[in-house]
Every structure is written in structure tokens, then in C-alpha cells.
Design a binder for these strands. Sequence first.
DNA 1: GGCAGTAACTTACCACGAGTAACTTACCTC
DNA 2: GAGGTAAGTTACTCGTGGTAAGTTACTGCC
Lengths: 195, 195
Amino acid sequence: METRPTRRRVGRAERERQILDAAVAVFGERGYQNASMDQVAERVGVTKPVLYTHFGSKHGLLLACIARARAELLEVTSTAAAAASTPEEMLRRGTLAFFDYLESRAPEWTVLYSESAVAGEALEEIRAQQTDFIAGLLGAQAPHADPRRLTGWANVIVGACERLALWRARTGVSSEQATEYLMDLVWTGLAGLRS
Amino acid sequence: METRPTRRRVGRAERERQILDAAVAVFGERGYQNASMDQVAERVGVTKPVLYTHFGSKHGLLLACIARARAELLEVTSTAAAAASTPEEMLRRGTLAFFDYLESRAPEWTVLYSESAVAGEALEEIRAQQTDFIAGLLGAQAPHADPRRLTGWANVIVGACERLALWRARTGVSSEQATEYLMDLVWTGLAGLRS
DNA sequence: GGCAGTAACTTACCACGAGTAACTTACCTC
DNA sequence: GAGGTAAGTTACTCGTGGTAAGTTACTGCC
């Protein structure tokens, strides 16, 4: 008698990693909206309800993808900033690391930034994280500045970086160039105000 | 015999305006994703296929909403900039007009910015429009600058404005304050480079 | 006033994808 | 090997985008 291809059973953590990998790939290829849960399931070699026992909903699966990338982003940028000795270098290196990281994980972030409709909430948290981080950097530089002003500046920088990153992706401008353009405006502006 | 409430028939242009108004309202309240075409249709007092004869698809209806708002945005900001006499005032007034316009049309733009997944393409065109406009402003100020650098700076400003606008909406910072924060960094930076 | 012709509109349906309930089976433990 | 449990499947419901085919209010013309 033929033995059926005896379906392999797999532990929880392992499966979750497989599913996240497949989800990033499928969402990246077809876009979150156009991708179906069945397509993700098929990629893993499993049926749909399995996805739901692990992540609850399609939205939940997307959030999990984002969460995994989020930690990396903070790690990478703050490490880069910490390696610098002067404040100017901190801002410059952090920005450069941001551009380079996005590029190295292009599939993940392409989805998340362009298909941001449903990801909105989670993406906004990431931006808040980056804004706080930068406001902290600026505060160390200008300890007597109004905190709200610092937050305003941090928002300027975060918004500028996001837009420059997408521009880079379209036009092929190097991460060094993009960083320079940001520093042109921002750092010079800050220097004038620091007194 | 009872006359049935004899359903009023309405011309094409008039209906399209009604539908767009209803769509903006419904999308604004429930979010684009969660809103159904039937809900929009009901708001107008009409059945679903009517929407499809006018706009082709749900996506098409969203694009039409955006298109209507888009012309206004360019109009408002360029008019404001044109009313200024110095370059600094142009940037300042244009930025201020941008914030105030978004606020006055909050329902429309809340949807479009937060629910940007499907609107992505059209929104990107609006950003391109704003970027070109600003790059032009900057170019007039620094005629010998590298055009790519001007575009980079324009991206910085557009990204910064977008983020500041959302921050404002959350925190209640005034449009004048937000404008000042942007000018702090950007204008001072530009001044230093203008030579 | 009546009589086409047409544009506006409705009813009734299909397809597809998110999400679920109920059942089955591989693996581990004793 | 018996039995418990976590992993997985089959087979469904329901909501919503989209459409085909039929119906009715308005228009211009005689």
C-alpha cells in the first residue's frame, strides 16, 4: 500500500517564521490588498485556517510583518548614531543608515510604505519612534530649547527622510547624496539657531 | 390611486457632484476600506450601479475625490506664494496656506492621507506636483544650483510639510507655529548656502 | 395631447475572498 | 501500544465589489 506523503508537522515558532517570510514575499509581489490569504497559505504549503490560528486576521498578519521589521530599524539607526563622536556626525550617520537599511530590506518596506492604508497605524508608531529618537538627539544639542520646538524639528527631519527615501528609490540617487541634501538644509539651519 | 413618490431624475453633472460629496463623507467616516459602495449609494439616495456608470469602480470613485481636491490645493498654495514679494515670504506664505487649506478641508484630506493605500498613486502625483512647484521656487532663488540638488531640497520640504501637518492635526499646534518650525531649519539652511 | 427614443435608474444576480466550525491526524508521553 | 493534545484539513457562511438585463422618467417632435 502507498504511504501518503505523510504531511510534516512543524513547531509553532518555526511555522510563524515561515508564514511571515511568505507573507512579506506575497504582499510585496501582489500588494497587500490584492494578495489573498490562500496565496500566502499556499506559499507556506499549508491551508488558510493555519494562518488564522497564528495571526488572527489578515490585518494581524500584516502587523506582525511590520513589527518584525520595526525593531531592526531602530537598532540599525541608533547603533549608527551611537558610533559617531560629534552631533553632526550622529545626525549624518543615522540618516545614512536609515537610507541604507531601507534599501537592504527593500521588499519589506516597499509594501509597507506604498500599501500603507491598512498599515497606517503601525507605521505611524514607527514614525513616532523615530521622531522621539531624533528629538532626543536634538535636545542633547540644544538643552534649553522649547521641547515642542524640538519635536517640530524632529517631525521635519522624519518627514524629509521618508520622502527622500522614496525619491531615491525612484531615481537612483545615492544614499550619500540624499543625506547631503538633508544636511544642507537641516544642519545648517540648526547651526544658525544653536547660538 | 396613490402616486408613488415618483423618483426624481437628475442630470449627469449634478449627480456626479452629489456622489463625490457622499463619497468624501462616507470614506471620511468609515475609512475607504470599511466603506461599502452601497453605503455611498444610500447616502445619495440611489442604487449601486449608478455609481459604477459614473466612476467605473470603487477605486475610480476615490481617484475622482482626490482629483477634485488636488486642483484646489495647487491653486491655494500658488496663489498664496504669488502674493508675496520676497522669496522668504513666498516659502513662508505657501507653507502656511498649505496647512490652513488642509485644515479647512479636513474631512477630504484625513481620508486621503491616512487611508492612502489605494490612493497611493494619485497622492504621489500630488506630491510630485508640490515638489516641482517648490523646486521652481528654489531655482528662482539659486539659479546656478544643481537641479538635482534643488529637487532633493524640494523633497525635504514636501516631506517635512506632510509630517508637520499630521502632527498639527494630532497635537493642535497652530499653523503659524508649524510654519515657523519649518522655516527655522529650512530657510536658515538655504540662506547659508545661497552665498 | 400622444408617441418614439434615450438616458437615468432598478432588480437580481455572480464571483471571490475573509473568516469560522467541526472534524481528522501526526506526534509525544507514559 | 493507549490516550491526550497540538497541528492541520474540509467544507462551509457572509459580505461586498462588480455586472447583465430589464424598467421608467424625461425630452423633443408631430
